[in-house]
């Protein structure tokens, strides 16, 4: 690597995560969430609690905002439009008419949480996942502070006894750990299921088939709003959806040919390059 080489091929060396970086990805797990289909039933959130051994923090701690929902349904009221339609008076919160935004870790390819962790407890896997290593985490919480989506949750307490008193501890998912106090956690795209699927595919000497397994939120969604799959597989449902809606990875601004296509990524202008595409809700008002 001579200096001349560096100077002449500078653009090559400047490749960040968003251009594929230095990773040779085996898979790139991605998602598409159709907000038109989302009815805000919170089944995904509940399924996530069951699948991922999320602590049930209780009313008191929830009100202190110490909840651990990896998958959360955000509710927004588009007030100006609702006002115009005479459905709401200004400044008054109503129970109906909300738009829902299911938020789970966006598995950013250029994740802002990764470079700031002092002990590299969060890093990028060859699966395109943003992994969190609980055993390595020392709980500096810098990752959460640098996550623009605020999708990281911290174990403020030791929840084991409170959350799963006997015999409820029998319902814990044995495929993954129960986190103790002082570590950060977040959505993993059900990495335990990915592991099983990959192992089975390897044993059968084949590739992972699209739709072979589902994440628990996808599985529980009654309206099939969530589509999950491998973005490197050109035949997968999720790849096709992204293509249809003209959303591409590695861009901070999408160059859409057709502006009517509903796909977008949350806060992609920050160049975090998230792996989840949302399909905008079309309102009738």
């Amino acid at each position: 690597m001579s200096l001349k080489n560096i100077l002449e091929n500078w653009s090559q060396y400047r490749r960040g995560h968003e251009q594929g970086g230095h990773h040779e990805y085996e898979h790139m797990w991605g998602m598409a969430i159709d907000l038109n289909k989302c009815i805000g039933c919170n089944a995904c959130s509940v399924a996530c609690y069951a699948e991922n051994n999320l602590a049930i923090v209780g009313k008191h701690r929830y009100s202190k905002s110490q909840a651990m929902h990896w998958m959360r349904i955000e509710r927004y009221w588009d007030e100006p439009e609702l006002e115009k339609a005479g459905l709401v008076t200004k400044g008054k919160t109503i129970e109906t008419g909300a738009s829902f935004l299911p938020m789970l870790c966006q598995q950013c390819n250029a994740a802002t949480c990764e470079p700031v962790c002092p002990v590299a407890a969060t890093y990028h896997t060859p699966d395109g996942l943003n992994a969190q290593v609980y055993n390595r985490c020392i709980g500096s919480r810098y990752c959460s502070n640098n996550c623009p989506y605020r999708l990281r949750y911290f174990n403020f307490w030791s929840y084991y006894e409170d959350s799963w008193p006997e015999p409820l501890h029998m319902q814990l998912n044995p495929d993954l750990s129960v986190r103790d106090k002082g570590v950060m956690e977040k959505c993993t795209f059900c990495v335990q299921r990915i592991r099983v699927a990959k192992d089975e595919a390897k044993m059968a000497d084949r590739k992972v088939i699209d739709g072979e397994f589902q994440t628990s939120c996808q599985q529980s969604c009654p309206t099939d709003a969530i589509v999950f799959g491998d973005m490197l597989d050109p035949q997968s449902r999720v790849t096709k959806l992204w293509k249809t809606h003209q959303v591409e990875l590695g861009k901070s601004k999408q160059s859409k040919q057709n502006p009517d296509k509903r796909g977008y990524r949350v806060l992609e202008g920050l160049n975090t390059d998230p792996c989840i595409m949302y399909l905008e809700r079309v309102r009738e008002v």
Binding site: R61, K64, S65, Q66, A67, G139, R141, S144, N145, R150, Y153, F154, N155, F156, W157, S158, K181, G182
Partner: peptide
Amino acid sequence: RTGMGVADLNWPNMW
């Protein structure tokens, strides 16, 4: 002994 919760830190006020 108890965890950072006793500091009443919360999500997203982690610091």
